[in-house]
Amino acid sequence: MDNFNSIEIELDNFTGPLDLLLQLLKKHKLEISDVSISEITEKYSEILKKMQERKLEVAGDYFVMASTLMLMKAKSLIPREKEAFEEMKEELLFKLEEYEKITRQAEVLSVFLDKRNRMWRRGFKEDFALKDKGVFVQENGGYVLGNLYSLLIKRLKAIEPEIVKRARYTMKQVVSHIYEVFKDKKKVRFYEIVKGRDKSFIVFSFSSVLELIKESVLKGVQTSTFSEIILIKSRNYSYKNRDKVISRYE
């Protein structure tokens, strides 16, 4: 797929600045070894500029590469910096070559995965792509436990006692907040909704979530007792018609 010709240049099409550079080289049919730094700097900056014009959020990684390229270009113009330039160039080319190997290896994995994905095992256990089931504690036991522990600590922080004042929220506010949270997301952890909020907000959110689950606006998944609650949009969720639902709560 040519990621450049489409009007929609999306950074999502690239896994990072090296990927973008490599695909640029491929597009212009350049070998890594005989690339002209000034040419590639220009093309690279052009793309970043285009993306900024379209107000796309460009990750810092891409700017780091842009400034490296520009520094190289500058050095290449100063005779006494020639050696430094050559060194930088060599390093960049080495990185690109290494990265190209990785893309080849990733392709290999992808081929293996496709083949394996065409076979089913007995019992039809869901793949992890489909399930929101918990992690099986296998070789990762330590990591899983560590994760649970940090979750616990986080939760304790979230519910640190506080003198309860009169309710500062209404169900309406909270439900509409939940709608906003889900606007661009399919799946949200309960803690994302209440992050940084006080106890009464948590209580309101929890009962609102229960209501919304009852109304099939959301679905709730929990991998085990007391584990994190994961909320998924359900069939009755509609951001457009949110006011109808919100107005029902007082």
């Binding site: 290896q105 990733a106 994905n117």
Partner: peptide
């Protein structure tokens, strides 16, 4: 059953690095 295990390109690259 529809979609099966799939990975983003970035995730595959990361896995490739770790695997190799």
């Amino acid at each position: 059953r529809g979609t099966r295990n799939s990975f983003s390109k970035a995730a595959l690259e990361t896995l490739a690095i770790i695997a190799y």
